[in-house]
Computed example of a mutant assay.
Amino acid sequence: MISEKNLIGNVKEKKSNYDLMTAVMICLGKKASTDTNVLKLLNVLLSTETASEDKCQILEEDFKIKMTQTLESEVSLMCNLSKGVEEQGIQKGLQKGLEQGIQAMIATLKKLQIPTETILIETCEKFGLTREDAEKYLK
């Protein structure tokens, strides 16, 4: 909670003058329902499906925003950032799926009472792991 605290003196101030934290939530909705310019602008800027060149063209043509080199680079940076975040999420998902696959295979081979040495060899071959990494999964 934000509260007023005077270090010197005893002057009172209205809370609205110092409690300036405000949250604004805008629901973008579906593309077809964007007849408000602000919502359409946000849809263009935040779209993960539109390339940065297309966004710059839309900003110039539809919103009459003069594209400078700085603005173009900022739009491109914003697009690359969202793609980077998406790619990072995909890589984490793939890694997690791979780990689950390795664990499932090892569990199945153990259930079939396959010798530990054979499990290690198969795990290394199938998943391209070092023996040390395969042993970690085996535990």
Results as ranks from 00 to 15, higher is better:
49 E>D: 14
118 T>M: 10
29 G>H: 00
130 T>H: 01
66 K>I: 05
4 E>K: 14
129 L>G: 08
39 L>W: 00
27 C>W: 04
138 L>I: 05
66 K>R: 07
33 S>K: 05
42 L>S: 02
127 F>M: 08
59 L>W: 02
135 E>S: 13
48 T>V: 03
55 K>R: 07
15 K>V: 04
35 D>W: 09
97 G>P: 05
3 S>R: 06
96 K>T: 10
106 I>T: 00
52 S>A: 00
9 G>S: 11
33 S>E: 07
127 F>A: 11
28 L>G: 01
119 I>T: 08
52 S>D: 00
9 G>I: 07
17 N>P: 01
79 C>S: 15
128 G>I: 03
14 K>A: 13
75 V>Q: 01
136 K>F: 01
24 V>G: 05
22 T>W: 01
54 D>S: 06
9 G>L: 10
6 N>G: 03
76 S>M: 15
13 E>M: 07
36 T>R: 14
3 S>Q: 06
26 I>D: 01
116 T>G: 00
73 S>Q: 11
134 A>M: 07
70 T>A: 08
18 Y>K: 02
47 S>K: 04
31 K>E: 07
87 E>K: 14
126 K>D: 07
43 N>D: 06
24 V>C: 09
51 A>R: 11
55 K>S: 00
127 F>V: 12
94 L>T: 13
134 A>Q: 09
65 I>N: 03
14 K>S: 12
72 E>R: 10
92 K>G: 10
108 T>G: 11
86 E>P: 00
75 V>R: 03
26 I>R: 01
101 G>T: 03
85 V>K: 10
86 E>N: 14
39 L>S: 02
102 I>G: 09
117 E>S: 11
70 T>C: 07
56 C>Q: 01
46 L>V: 03
101 G>W: 02
50 T>M: 14
96 K>D: 10
98 L>P: 08
11 V>E: 12
109 L>N: 09
26 I>W: 00
6 N>V: 01
44 V>R: 04
116 T>E: 13
139 K>V: 11
16 S>I: 04
16 S>T: 05
66 K>M: 02
38 V>L: 14
59 L>Y: 05
106 I>V: 06
113 Q>A: 05
115 P>C: 07
105 M>G: 03
43 N>S: 07
46 L>I: 03
8 I>S: 07
21 M>T: 05
9 G>C: 08
127 F>L: 11
22 T>A: 12
120 L>V: 15
118 T>C: 06
90 I>M: 12
133 D>H: 02
88 Q>E: 15
96 K>A: 14
134 A>C: 06
103 Q>S: 15
15 K>L: 04
7 L>K: 07
